[in-house]
């Protein structure tokens, strides 16, 4: 028999939402800085930011364990303060954040590179400080590319498996997302349950992509 997977759905959406929000803030800022300033070691930073796309998620999970694991560089410091990311939903957020970071970064970087510098200069000549230039000109101009990247990142975050499994484990009701629940159900021979989970996951992703297309696709500006 099949159970309706309320917990995995909620956990998946929670993890995908938090990780997308965190990734968004960091990658958009970094993309803007990288696109506008001659940062030292820019190529290396660019490559590092792309790395999570090509590395197997388990490798990322391994690196994260080295850093935030109980005996990790940062993990020991955190656990002294009562913060433990391993086997927690926050750990799953961390894993997903790292995995989806390049998706927003890459598209934001491209979008900022494509913004007409004269628009920013015009804003400056009209008395705008750098904060105003960013929020009133650069960000709205790069909007479409950033939104596209963010939606892709959210969808990818929903399906995160490898890195999440290594950091957060597969604890039903706590860290078990849809992707992990499918694997669990299938391993346990519950084919019907796995099929239901797969159908739900696909449906959610499809709804996100279709509504995104509907919301944003005729761009308001030509």
């Amino acid at each position: 028999m099949t159970d309706f997977p309320t917990d995995p759905i909620l956990i998946t959406i929670k993890v995908a939402s938090f990780s997308t929000a965190i990734s968004f803030a960091f990658s958009v800022l970094l993309a803007y800085v990288m696109s506008r300033r001659n940062v030292l070691g820019r190529r290396i930073i660019d490559s590092l930011c792309t790395l999570p796309i090509v590395l197997p998620p388990t490798v990322l999970g391994f690196f994260l364990l080295v850093i935030v694991g109980r005996r990790g560089v940062l993990g020991a410091w955190l656990s002294e303060r009562g913060i433990n990311l391993i086997f927690s939903w926050q750990g799953a957020v961390l894993a997903a954040t790292v995995v989806i970071f390049p998706l927003i970064y890459k598209s934001a970087r491209g979008a900022f590179d494509g913004v007409d510098r004269n628009l920013e200069n015009a804003a400056r000549s009209l008395g705008a400080n750098e904060m105003k230039v960013f929020f009133l000109v650069s960000l709205p101009q790069a909007r479409n590319g950033i939104i596209a990247g963010t939606l892709l990142a959210f969808a990818r975050g929903m399906g995160e498996f490898g890195a999440t499994l290594m950091i957060a484990g597969n604890i039903p009701g706590k860290t078990q997302t849809l992707a992990l629940a499918i694997y669990d159900a299938f391993s346990a021979g519950k084919d019907a349950q796995a099929a239901l989970l797969a159908a739900i996951t696909s449906a959610i992703c499809l709804v996100i992509l279709v509504s995104a297309d509907w919301l944003f696709s005729p761009p308001r500006q030509g």
Binding site: D116, N118, L119, N121, A122, A123, R124, S125, L126, G127, A128, N129, L136, V137, P140, Q141, R143, R220, Q221
Partner: peptide, 27 residues
């Protein structure tokens, strides 16, 4: 931003996401 130079660009550099009124109100 502090040079107080009214700059008209060759391609005008109007903010495409703002109405004419908002463009003029910008500075």
């Amino acid at each position: 931003r502090k040079r107080r130079i009214g700059y008209v660009f060759q391609d005008y550099a109007l903010f495409p996401h703002m109405s004419v009124r908002k463009n003029i109100a910008f500075g």
